Simulated assay, not measured.
Amino acid sequence: MDLKDIFVPSDRSVRPARFVGEYFFAHDGWPGVLRLQVSAGRNLRGEYRDHRLDQTFTVTGQIDLEVRHRITLVIHDFNWLPEQRFTGYLFTHGDGRTIAGTTTWETEPFGFVAFGDGELPPAVPGQVTNQVTPTDFTGSYTMLHDGHVAEINLEHAEGRLLTGVYRHPDLDDELAVEGEIDADFGHGCAFRFTGDARLSDVRLHGYLFTRPKNAISGEIVSGGTTTGFVMLRRS
């Protein structure tokens, strides 16, 4: 496999029916169940059952006409807002259904993920608090991005800087990773690969789930394409 191919989506194969079904859904770690069906064309309708609030909410969705794996989901009258919008990317490789991306509550950004098959790992013991420190990002993760399964290990270097390595089963060599925690939102972080010029334009931007500290989700930009990713903490 060519190195760049790992970050290239196969979105021309995505049809609206690929989004249909039931998902385990988590925004910033808060869990629930999302159900989607096609209403007309590239529009979807459904419902979201929030475990925390023990309530069901109406959901509408619109699939992007140009970026066929991108969807905007709206949960109506939810989370003390008239609506909360979620921009996510359906994984285009593999047979499973996973959507990962970002949302905003009032003015603060967060990550989310929706699994057609699977769920989040347990919360990190003793870390169920909204406060985030740089060391909360450190650890070993299973990284799922656009259907690829890899491993990434992160360490705290100094200040807001992180370092790490990325390993993909189809690559002979591991890749060095550098990260910088967002100065305004301490649960946000931007990552880039170093040491290989072919990945100089690849950028990851994601958000640590603030309470359980058990996952990071967001977007990968590579050239002119964007895909979703989620990193599930193993240790």
Score class of each variant (00 low, 15 high):
54 D>S: 15
1 M>C: 07
175 L>T: 02
39 S>D: 12
187 H>G: 05
124 V>E: 14
75 I>L: 04
185 F>A: 04
182 D>T: 07
154 L>N: 07
187 H>W: 15
108 E>G: 09
43 N>K: 09
114 A>C: 15
157 A>W: 08
215 A>R: 06
142 T>V: 04
96 G>S: 15
136 D>S: 13
63 I>N: 08
138 T>I: 05
118 G>R: 10
122 P>S: 04
31 P>H: 05
184 D>M: 05
73 L>G: 02
20 V>W: 00
61 G>H: 00
78 F>G: 01
6 I>Y: 14
37 Q>D: 12
167 R>F: 01
131 Q>W: 05
149 V>R: 15
55 Q>G: 01
174 E>I: 00
212 P>S: 05
174 E>V: 07
108 E>I: 14
193 F>P: 11
195 G>H: 02
210 T>V: 14
82 P>E: 02
191 F>A: 13
6 I>L: 15
91 F>V: 01
88 G>E: 03
76 H>N: 13
9 P>W: 01
145 H>A: 03
219 E>Y: 02
208 L>M: 07
181 I>D: 12
224 G>S: 14
29 G>C: 10
201 D>A: 14
134 P>N: 11
138 T>N: 04
59 V>Y: 02
113 V>L: 10
99 I>V: 15
181 I>E: 12
67 V>Q: 14
114 A>E: 08
190 A>H: 06
40 A>S: 12
85 R>N: 10
93 H>Q: 11
52 R>V: 10
176 A>R: 14
41 G>S: 04
161 L>A: 14
62 Q>H: 08
123 A>S: 13
144 L>K: 08
144 L>G: 07
60 T>L: 06
29 G>N: 08
186 G>R: 13
158 E>R: 13
104 T>N: 13
37 Q>F: 02
222 S>Y: 10
175 L>C: 02
53 L>G: 02
63 I>P: 06
20 V>S: 01
106 E>W: 11
104 T>C: 09
210 T>H: 11
162 L>W: 05
16 P>D: 01
70 R>M: 09
100 A>D: 08
155 E>M: 10
198 R>G: 04
160 R>P: 11
228 G>T: 08
16 P>M: 02
63 I>G: 06
183 A>G: 03
207 Y>R: 14
141 Y>N: 05
28 D>V: 12
53 L>N: 13
104 T>I: 14
161 L>Q: 15
90 L>R: 06
228 G>D: 09
147 G>Y: 00
74 V>C: 06
170 D>I: 03
92 T>Q: 09
88 G>I: 03
75 I>P: 01
21 G>M: 01
214 N>W: 07
88 G>P: 02
159 G>L: 08
110 F>A: 12
43 N>R: 15
167 R>Q: 12
184 D>T: 11
194 T>K: 13
117 D>V: 02
1 M>N: 10
3 L>C: 03
200 S>A: 14
